[in-house]
Amino acid sequence: MINDILKNLSILNVFWFIIDLSLILLGNRLLHWTVNFVSKKKTYPSKNFFNSIVSLLNWITIYAVIFLFLFSFPNRKWMFRPLYSQGGIDVSFFLILIVIMSILFAHKLIKLLTTHVLKPVYKHYNINNGLGYTFNKIIYYTLMIIALGISFKSVGIDLTGLGTIFSVLGIGIGFGMRNIAGNFVCGIIILFERPIEVGEVIQLNEGIGRVENIRLRSTIIRTAKEGTLIIPNQYFIEHIIKNRTGSEMIAEVTVSVEYGVSTEKVDKVLHEAVSKVKGKSEGILNEPNPTIRFVNFRNRTMDFLVEIPVINFEIKEQIESKLRHSIVQSFTEEGIHLAPYEFSQVLLNKLEK
């Protein structure tokens, strides 16, 4: 077969291939320059839109190079020679290549549509990010299913037959894949009911994170300490999830001191420690003001609770650490001793607006 492909290939063919390839690459660079020039002059659309256009141009260039390479051979009959016949369609290598490239190109175009074309529409009609994200997912999966269906039909694959095969296989493997199927169903429920949305801050057990992406099988959560978590969607349907969005985070430190120390002095020193942290740190809210409370008597200690409102969960633990350093320094300067068995814990509360 290779001999048939290379048959009658001459130096002239190679020469024209190099010339055509150079023209394609030159055209690609000119289009890149044009897009970059326009992006610097325009503030809208966004820079990401122009980056997507550049990416799309690169895909078109790759496709052009592939076709140029294939059609540079004098003998091109091998591309159109039927590999098999299905449903009255003669399927060749060229047809299979067109189908694969069409699916990939459809994926790229749909991503461009949902990311940059529909986003201004959502903004114009005051559609929030969560609902817009749901619409984008529905549009993406719907159009990709249509593209795949058309592609399969083009190569003679009977979708009715595939449906029958999958239904039979589904009975056999249904029990083994019930968890995966459950996660898919829960993913659809989350997209439509929207108990959580992309960008929201949620609490899982003792951890807090921000929703990065909601996929059909799993949801991506970014946390400050554990990094990125991939959580099956079924978890969000079966467990209680605390939504922290719309609420400030409270950095809390409980400080225990020995009996015999003036409580008013402790209160004053804690206020000074808080003022030092607030003056040197970013991410602390101006309203409401930090609070210091005498919260409990214990067998050997008196407990004070320091609360500072912060902007988000990412900054919360940093503020708590700085607050502890400041408290220890201020107590040392004033001769106040922490309890021998220090009872210091970090809590997370929700402060309703």
Rank of each mutant, 00 (worst) to 15 (best):
M1H: 05
I11F: 11
F15N: 02
F15H: 03
I18D: 02
I24K: 05
L26Q: 01
L30F: 10
L30V: 11
L30M: 10
H32G: 07
S52M: 15
I53L: 15
N58K: 07
N58F: 13
T61L: 04
I62Q: 03
A64S: 12
V65I: 15
F71A: 08
G88P: 08
G88D: 08
D90K: 00
V99Q: 01
V99D: 03
L104D: 06
L112A: 15
T115P: 02
T115I: 07
T115A: 15
V117F: 15
V121P: 03
N126A: 08
N129S: 11
K137M: 09
L143A: 08
M144Y: 12
I145L: 14
I145G: 10
I146Q: 03
A147P: 06
F152Y: 08
K153W: 14
K153Q: 06
V155M: 05
L159K: 03
G163A: 12
S167R: 06
G172W: 07
F175A: 08
M177V: 13
N179I: 12
I180S: 07
F184R: 00
F184M: 13
G187Y: 06
I188P: 03
I189K: 13
E193A: 12
R194I: 14
P195T: 10
V198I: 12
N205V: 07
E206T: 12
E206F: 10
G207C: 03
I208E: 10
N213T: 14
R215N: 15
T219N: 04
E226Y: 11
T228Q: 07
I230T: 14
P232E: 10
F236P: 04
T245Y: 09
T245D: 13
S247F: 15
E258S: 01
V261D: 00
V261T: 05
E264R: 14
V266A: 06
V266H: 05
K268I: 12
L270E: 00
S275Q: 11
K276T: 13
K280R: 09
E287L: 12
R293I: 14
N296Q: 15
R298C: 01
N299V: 09
D303M: 06
L305S: 13
I308D: 08
P309V: 14
P309Q: 10
K316V: 14
H325Y: 10
V328Q: 01
Q329S: 13
F331E: 02
I336Q: 02
S344T: 13
L351A: 06
